[in-house]
Write a protein that binds this DNA or RNA. Structure first.
Lengths: 238, 238
DNA sequence: CTCCTGTCGACTGTTAACAGAAGGTAGGTG
DNA sequence: CACCTACCTTCTGTTAACAGTCGACAGGAG
């Protein structure tokens, strides 16, 4: 109750944003609080379905309720929080149907992304994707499921950014946060299970070869495989 | 300054939301203000690029700045407003590149939608689409470009809703608002130019026949045609 | 004449306080 | 003993006030 960790803008920036080093970024309280609550949710500190009380959060961060309300609204837009009218905010609870929605929509968005990426990708972009892929392998060896998930999303984010399509990126980011939250449900199992069977490599190769159809097909196979894996684990839980 | 039109929740609901008649919906001030500002933007009362001052809007609607700020944040999420840090909110200005983004992303989303709709569509759903199509024809005869645009979006919204995919619908709604705003730029021309060459009918027929590939292809042709038409007019303006 | 600098007004980000709704609890009633 | 009702606490939606920032403008230096 009296933890008072008082959001230090500095810390939040360095821990999350990749701020250009020479430019001092003035971070709004609202943004700092958003990042903080987001971390609480994605780290599992607050469980799905749990209520987020504005006054508690405000006290914890040492701000007033205003920025907290703004942050919760932002997180609702990201799909991590559900705000019920006059009833408060809750961490979203994802169902098996939500898994299908997430992956089918991600497929639609990322298929467009890889096709554009195939056109735009330059050699150093391919290098960036390969280094993301390496990071996934490293995380797999470490056996840290969270790191695997984040590395996985980083590669997909790189591909999406190559499309150079702002609205596409925004729509995708919302799904990315929810995907990470969903992976939270699964971290109790062995991380190898969500491992890469060379599917990512096939996507990158196709992009490097400027073959949009092959890239799209590889992506579709990969996401469908991932969806099935996740659904299987969801079935086991409930 | 002293206009004081004082948002009457009642009016806003009836003019925009399709509220179930027997249930009295307690509309939050925030939602009412959102609808009001949205109408200001989509009706052209405020021009693209124009600044939206919180204090002015609050005075106009007879509320405090709180709900106005909430509403502006909502509209930023819809893509109608751009909020610059400590500099205020502005009506978005769409460029030719934005037109390409809008239509390419709508295609990705709506292709998924028609494929799902092809599976889900029942006879009365087809009837609903056909009546939407009739409404477009009527609006075309009336020569009211705004009505044509809204009727057009209503048909597309019907199709999207048939996919029964919540996240897809949410993502699409954001683009729908921006599409309507974009049509605002074009209303000075003859509405026939954006007329239907039977493309909509082809989509509906394919859905009714449960032929997903043909539906997707018809949709693609339609959206590409629309995109080209809009781009042509954008080129004329600038 | 152009560029820089200090001041000023306006507006946003934030805060603290108020009023009303939602849900839980205790007491009473059948 | 189960159910209903009235209160009561908690929390949200909203409001009004405060403090700091941004851009404009005027004045002076080069």
């Amino acid at each position: 109750m009296t933890t008072q960790e008082s959001v230090t803008t500095q810390e939040s920036v360095t821990t999350h944003e990749i701020a250009s080093p020479n430019e001092i970024v003035r971070l709004e309280l609202r943004a700092a609080v958003t990042i903080e609550i987001r971390n609480m949710i994605l780290s599992g500190e607050v469980a799905p379905g749990q209520r987020l009380v504005e006054t508690e959060l405000a006290a914890r961060f040492g701000t007033s309720r205003g920025p907290v309300r703004d942050a919760l609204a932002d997180l609702e837009r990201s799909g991590l929080v559900l705000i019920k009218n006059r009833r408060g905010s809750f961490v979203v609870e994802l169902t098996a149907e939500d898994v299908d929605e997430l992956y089918s929509l991600r497929l639609a968005l990322e298929e467009l992304a890889v096709r554009k990426a195939t056109i735009n990708a330059r050699p150093d972009d391919v290098g960036r994707m390969r280094s993301d892929l390496t990071a996934i392998g490293t995380a797999l060896l470490d056996g840290n499921a969270d790191q695997v998930g984040e590395a996985d999303m980083r590669l997909h984010r790189t591909i999406v950014s190559l499309a150079a399509h702002q609205r596409l990126s925004e729509a995708w980011e919302r799904l990315a946060d929810q995907t990470l939250l969903m992976m939270r449900y699964l971290t109790h199992t062995r991380p190898e299970i969500q491992g890469d069977r060379g599917e990512h490599g096939a996507i990158i190769d196709a992009i490097a070869d400027h073959d949009p159809d092959r890239a799209a097909q590889a992506l579709g196979a990969h996401l469908e495989e991932a969806r099935l894996t996740v659904r299987r684990q969801f079935a086991q839980r409930s």
